[in-house]
Design a protein around this nucleic acid. Sequence first.
DNA 1: GCGAAAATGCAACTTGGTTGCATTTTCGCG
DNA 2: CGCGAAAATGCAACCAAGTTGCATTTTCGC
Lengths: 141, 141
Amino acid sequence: MDSLIILRNAHLRATEHRIRTLELLLKANRPMSHVELLNAFGQCDRVTLYRILDAFVEANILHRILGSDGIWRFCAHTNLHHKCPGGHPHLMCESCGQMTCLVDIPIQHIDIDNIDPEFHISHKQFLILGTCQNCYAKKHT
Amino acid sequence: MDSLIILRNAHLRATEHRIRTLELLLKANRPMSHVELLNAFGQCDRVTLYRILDAFVEANILHRILGSDGIWRFCAHTNLHHKCPGGHPHLMCESCGQMTCLVDIPIQHIDIDNIDPEFHISHKQFLILGTCQNCYAKKHT
DNA sequence: GCGAAAATGCAACTTGGTTGCATTTTCGCG
DNA sequence: CGCGAAAATGCAACCAAGTTGCATTTTCGC
């Protein structure tokens, strides 16, 4: 899907930076961190990129996931991402930081009324940590 | 259980700070952040507290959970915490930051071999976000 | 109670993210 | 087309959580 159309639909201004950011994320099709995006960019102020990402999350065209390293990663929504309304788990390599969306897998239901009836759930985060293929190979050679 | 005995068993030195930290966490029986502990302390250097917490996690007498605010919380192990070998979910109020261990609930199994056979899982984090009773009441008055 | 190993305190640093503000750009509307 | 309000950008400064290095003090096995 064309990033320009996505921006228009979300009532966001189609500036060069914003188009670029969205294109990068759509092409990558995996959650990327702020630094990662900044490096991929030719020229963009880091604060501007932070604000772009915030705006995109606000406009619901990205979702963001906190890694176990405390760094946020941002992932463009594709139609695959809407399969599980309650969100999906994320795989994260603790060695290189790479993250993957497990878009097909629903997150387990929690019967909160039986645990803490006074708690109001807004959403859930499920992070699966470990070592990816690449890093595992590197470690065992 | 006496914190001194726990420290001895874990081959950790029983200094005043360490006993105090462990006692605070055992008494609270919920995950606490570094600042929260520091405030509860009378006099302790913040770096020292960081190092104590690290040592305790290393020695496996605490577990730590990253909140959606990017701040680590530390929780003393009780025998309840060992019910679910694969870990348990955590409830977090996004308004006040308070966290609760759902020690009775096992985290869903992920059949990683069918998804990414090359990924090696080390552990899982399941965070349930929302609003606690207190904060919900405050918002709706 | 001696001495090696570990714990502590302090200063300085790193890093991811935020805020304020002046300047520039976008885009709806006449 | 081009005007002007609203939004986006760039820059500097800031903030907070966590880390590192190092000199001093404390613990605890012998």
